[in-house]
Amino acid sequence: MKRILVTGALGQIGTELVAKLRETYGTMNVIATDIRACDANVIEKKGPFEVVDVTEEAGIYYVAAKYQVDTIIHLASLLSANAERNPRLAWNINMGGLINTLEVARELNLKFFTPSSIGAFGPSTPKNLTPQNTFQRPTTMYGLSKVAGELLCDYYFKRFGVDTRGLRFPGLISYIAPPGGGTTDYAVEIYYHAVKNKAYTSYIKEGTTLDMMYMPDAINAIITLMEENPEKLLHRNAYNVSAFSAAPEDFAAIIRKYIPTFKLDYQVDPTRQVIADSWPNAIDSSAAVNEWGFRVEYDLEKLTKDMLEKITGKLGME
């Protein structure tokens, strides 16, 4: 990668990814785009920023050609819980935006990355050590769009030779940008509430184990995958990746090592609980490890220490 266009750059992944890419490849070589203008001085004053609606192919093409990019990292999407509230909008954004950016990649001969998700699995998928290749019948619009997206990227690779790559991300945890309506958002919220209130009410019930990953590991995985020799990539558009699996009470137990009075209770959100119940407990990341050296630095304990320190500083509560 030498010059990179990022869609959805103001989202949870995009905010941190753009910063890391600019640090690695140069500020002016990473073009951040989103459907809304950047008003926080976070991205706009540190490099190129363009307003782009991914449902309009012409706008994506214009920006990609203007900056002569060689790679598109396509992050713009509607996440799981929000997608269930407005499934038609989710389809239009997730699938319409994807095929538009794939077309631009095909026309301009660009490398292409888009994330998939553990949401691509469903209730009939094996729950434990979920294989790389397995039965996928998701029961949500978000999951449906992710399976279709994996297949569409496979199609553009095989039919047109577009160098498409992707990761099935678990729940992603970050202190920098707020989550955007996903089922695993509680794993971010619990740390903020621990610092501010020493208590949290989880919308996911006790005992619901899900795969998770700290954002620095997710960012590193994207860059590592995109820099890998394409000949090594057998499962190029849908690698299982995860750092650890945890339930709400597991987060609480580690938080209490630092905040002994922290309290956790539950008020279950039926919509998000149904989604969570349809996902695996723990997935098998061995294909990513074997094919391109996937690894993580943060387990739950190391992540918790870092999250609490960073949020405390961010909120000025030191």
Results as ranks from 00 to 15, higher is better:
Lys127Phe: 06
Ala83Arg: 08
Trp91Thr: 15
Arg106Val: 06
Ala120Glu: 09
Ile118Cys: 03
Ile99Gly: 00
Glu107Ser: 11
Pro115His: 00
Thr140Asp: 05
Thr114Val: 12
Leu108Gln: 12
Phe113Ile: 01
Lys111Leu: 13
Lys111Arg: 15
Arg106Ile: 04
Gln136Phe: 01
Asn109Gln: 12
Ser145Val: 00
Asn92Pro: 06
Leu78His: 04
Leu144Gly: 06
Phe135Tyr: 08
Pro138Ala: 11
Leu75Lys: 05
Leu151Phe: 11
Leu129His: 12
Ala76His: 06
Leu152Pro: 00
Trp91His: 13
Ile93Ser: 07
Arg137Ile: 13
Leu102Glu: 01
Tyr142His: 12
Asn128Val: 14
Gly96Ser: 03
Arg85His: 13
Phe113Tyr: 03
Phe135Asp: 11
Gly97Lys: 09
Leu152Gly: 00
Leu78Arg: 10
Asn133Ala: 11
Leu98Glu: 00
Leu110Ser: 03
Asn82Arg: 03
Val104Met: 01
Leu110Arg: 08
Ser116Ala: 11
Lys146Pro: 03
Arg137Leu: 09
Ala148Tyr: 09
Leu78Thr: 12
Ile73Asp: 01
Ile118Trp: 01
Phe121Lys: 04
Glu107Met: 09
Leu129Ser: 11
Arg106Tyr: 07
Leu110Ala: 03
Ser77His: 07
Ser145Ala: 03
Asn128Phe: 14
Trp91Gly: 13
Phe112His: 05
Ala83Phe: 05
Arg85Tyr: 10
Ala76Gly: 02
Pro123Gln: 14
Leu144Gln: 11
Met141Asn: 04
Asn92Val: 12
Gln136Val: 04
Gly149Thr: 01
Thr139Glu: 13
Arg88Cys: 13
Glu150Phe: 05
Arg106Lys: 06
